[in-house]
Design a protein around this nucleic acid. Structure first.
Lengths: 153, 153
DNA sequence: AATTTAGTTCTGTAAATTTTGAACTAACAG
DNA sequence: CTGTTAGTTCAAAATTTACAGAACTAAATT
């Protein structure tokens, strides 16, 4: 397989997006490659060659991606190779999880509230209001997702 | 001012939370300190001493926090010191911005769609569905925030 | 039994990031 | 006009991280 310049550029862009989420560069590029690859299942060596990374980097990154969720692999009888692919089944859940991570800051802010004195009323009420806002989002987001699933039936 | 062990632990936890968002450690600790500090306005040297960081690290981190939004400072006539504090006014917007950043992945996926062949139908329809889902969120989130603001009137 | 395949694991190193320390500046104070 | 305060800036040190290369393993092949 060869990659068009356009696809190569997209791999980098997607890679950078995932880097910003805390992923290591090579893992981000693998994500990018899997999105743009016309064949959705790629072998270890295809990935390695297409991205020009070493075996060890490929191994480490793939295992990380499998452990943390976004990648899985399938095998075929009589073929020792693993075929790596994006786990498309959990995209919505993974996204919801990222929203939840943001909202989970609420827990820290609640702990903050407990250690604060009553002195700085102004700040405290801002804090309480923001906690309430996070609470609201935590409540409403699941129904938003449910509403979408309903609309797809 | 002295910090309880509990507050110190919270500063670290909040610091790590901000590190995961791509912030440098010292800046994350400053965020943590400003959340737990009973006095909401702190001077350069208070921050420096409470967190045990150098002047230059303090300066760099504070300027970064001011540039990127979460911190501001006020001054008092006849006092050359700057009093640094959390910018509480934009918490909701900053959070909305982080949601938007996640959703902005949609643009990359649309570019991906354009480069893909029609071969892998299965994958392509997953991709299209996910793009539609992101589209849906992009549409619905603003009204969710508006709804909260209404309820607070 | 030797070789090939499909990876894994273990240093070592290059690169990037973060932080310090020291010298500097600009404003004000005595 | 000398000293002090409130920072800033820069070079160098320390830390972290990501990756390559080489040696290794376990299964299958010849």
């Amino acid at each position: 397989m060869i990659l068009s310049e356009q696809k190569k550029a997209l791999i980098e862009k997607i890679g950078i997006f995932y880097e910003k989420l805390g992923m290591q560069p090579a893992a981000g590029r693998i994500m990018g490659l899997m999105f743009v690859s016309d064949r959705p299942e790629l072998t270890f060596d295809e990935i390695r060659e297409l991205l020009n990374i070493s075996k060890s980097a490929t191994s480490t990154a793939l295992n990380l991606l499998i452990e943390t969720g976004p990648v899985e692999y399938i095998t075929f009888a009589g073929d020792r190779k693993r075929y790596f692919k994006l786990k498309t089944s959990n995209w919505r859940d993974a996204l919801a999880q990222r929203f939840n991570n943001i909202i989970s800051f609420k827990t820290l802010l609640q702990e903050v509230m407990e250690t604060r004195s009553d002195k700085s009323t102004e700040f405290n009420s801002c804090l309480e209001e923001f906690i309430d806002f996070l609470e609201y989002l935590q409540q409403e987001l699941p129904s938003l997702l449910k509403k979408w699933e309903e609309s797809r039936k």
